[in-house]
Nucleic acid binder design. Structure first.
Length: 469
RNA sequence: GGUCCCAUCGUCUAGUGGUUUAGGACGCCGGCCUCUCACGCCGGUAACUCGGGUUCGAAUCCCGGUGGGAUCACCA
């Protein structure tokens, strides 16, 4: 069986956006699934818009998504000799010719054709003139005048184009640089690309490219055009809809596996399954189940999926990913047992790593005061001082803070005070965390450790005595 | 405007002529669990764009309308 070779060809004119990430992902998944090759090619022929910063941003994003490539990155600007060679072939076989019509003249032809109700296109004036190479001549492809060109799209099915719709498009500009459609075909041919999965917005280019493949006597690759990703208002995704940049999602605390899981499910399905590990995706991905219609990017669903992935990730693997966010919060955290304990109590209640870091606040503060105002007012009342004092004594007597021992300690306090568990737990929570919302109180006590717990309980008693009087 | 594509709950989707009172997920609304918040569990809300055919029978096939999108460069 032929080795599947796919590619991702971004142009470095900005960061990697959500839509681009998805086509990169589809190509990567398909190559991995088929044990094929995935090639990265940078389409940097637009001198004015291409920047090194964009190239770096794309690498950074692919790196975060963990989409690795087997060949490349190739840069089109370093391949002009290859393009020249193929241009020569087209000229030699008579499939291309020099044209000296000026842009203004061509524009006039288009206007005229349009005025007569036809399609705006170049009228083929220089087609049979046999013009020689000259300074301001462009090279045009000699497109067939009759017949049809059909795109056999694995996603959309056959798409038929009348060749009469096509005009003799420019393959080489007057300054000697080759144009997009030509360059793509030459690259795909020379790089052995046999599977082209790309955005919907390229379908209209495909018949032009097919004509080029045929003129160059090269075998056609399999084409698949994936539908666009839309924003909430069903228009093309843009900054208005929130973050476009892939790395922005990294910074918001999403896990790369959750992000690719979401992206792939936006347009592809495997029955009712929603949650996929990266490996499952590689195993189950296929082209047949990619949908035909555009999909709306839903941040809420991404977030829900992220929560699922966080929960499914073992604490040990989560720690290094969460650590940077803890640092950003200003915590003096390291990847140690304490961090593992902290994450253990937080990972079922954090939808993002940012949320997790925020939730870990009380674990990394010496003193949780000032308390949340409402919480203190409601739970740190004069009569609770002795409850906290008693609990501190009971806990102090323990040499192991395992949940079972803690329960016994709480039970003693409940008996001597006649209070229910709930009446004790909330004040304790406020004393230990500063707020009324936190992981289970036993977990918090165990992770915090005896010395922090005792210090915070005493601080709370102190607080009550200083304000209650 | 020409060409091309698309059309199932608000959103992502399952569904390829009968197994469907159209299933799952997110969201939303209830409830249970309970030391708070989550998690988990249970229940609810909500869809086949419209009109014609084909057929004993259409979400599923065909035609048309409508709506949305893509694209019409010496940009990629």
């Amino acid at each position: 069986m032929e080795t599947i070779i796919t590619r991702f060809p971004p142009s470095p004119t900005g960061y990697l956006h959500v839509g681009g990430a998805r086509t990169a992902l589809f190509n990567w998944l398909y190559a991995r699934k088929k044990n094929g090759k995935f090639i990265l090619r940078i389409e940097d022929t637009d001198n004015v818009r291409s920047t090194q910063a964009s190239v770096d941003a794309i690498f950074e994003a692919l790196d975060w998504l963990e989409l690795d490539w087997d060949e490349g990155p190739y840069f089109q600007t370093r391949r002009f000799d290859v393009y020249r060679e193929y241009l020569r072939r087209l000229l030699d076989s008579g499939d291309a010719y020099y044209c000296t019509c000026t842009p203004d003249e061509v524009e006039a032809m288009r206007r005229k054709a349009k005025a007569q109700g036809g399609k705006p296109k170049y009228d083929g004036r220089c087609r049979e003139r046999g013009l020689p190479r000259s300074d301001n001549a462009v090279i045009r492809f000699k497109a067939p005048l009759v017949g049809t060109t059909v795109v056999e799209d694995v996603i959309k099915g056959n798409i038929v184009f009348q060749n009469t719709e096509q005009d003799d498009f420019v393959v080489c500009r007057s300054d000697g640089t080759p144009t997009y459609n030509f360059v793509v075909v030459v690259d795909d041919i020379t790089m052995g690309i046999n599977t082209v999965i790309r955005g919907d917005d390229h379908v209209m280019n495909t018949p032009k490219q097919i004509l080029l493949y045929k003129a160059l006597k090269a075998p056609l690759p399999v084409f698949g055009h994936v539908p666009m990703v839309l924003g909430k208002d069903k228009t093309r995704l843009s900054k208005r809809h929130g973050a476009m940049s892939v790395t922005a999602y990294r910074d918001m605390g999403y896990l790369p596996d959750a992000f690719i899981n979401y992206l792939v499910r936006l347009g592809w399905s495997h029955g009712d399954q929603e949650f996929f590990t990266r490996q499952e995706l590689v195993e189950k991905f296929n082209l047949e189940n990619i949908g035909k219609s555009a999909g709306v990017f839903d941040p809420d669903k991404l977030t829900a999926l992220n929560a699922d992935h966080i929960r499914a990730t073992p604490v040990g693997q989560l720690a290094p990913r969460a650590l940077p966010f803890f640092k950003t919060m200003g915590y003096d955290a390291t990847d140690d047992d304490y961090l593992a304990g902290v994450i253990g109590t937080l990972h079922t209640r954090s939808k993002t790593l940012v949320e997790m870091a925020e939730g870990a606040h009380f674990y990394y503060r010496e003193d949780v005061r000032p308390y949340d105002e409402k919480a203190a007012k409601k739970f740190l009342k004069p009569e609770t001082a002795r409850v906290l004092t008693q609990l501190a004594e009971q806990l102090d007597a323990l040499d192991n803070l395992a949940q079972k021992n803690q329960e016994a300690a709480f039970k003693k306090v409940m008996e001597s005070t006649g209070l229910g568990f709930g009446k004790i737990a909330q004040p304790v929570r406020v004393a230990l965390t500063g707020t009324t919302v936190s992981p289970g109180i036993f977990e918090v006590i165990e992770v915090l450790g005896k010395s922090r717990v005792l210090a915070r309980l005493r601080a709370a008693v102190e607080f009550i005595e200083s304000t209650g009087a």
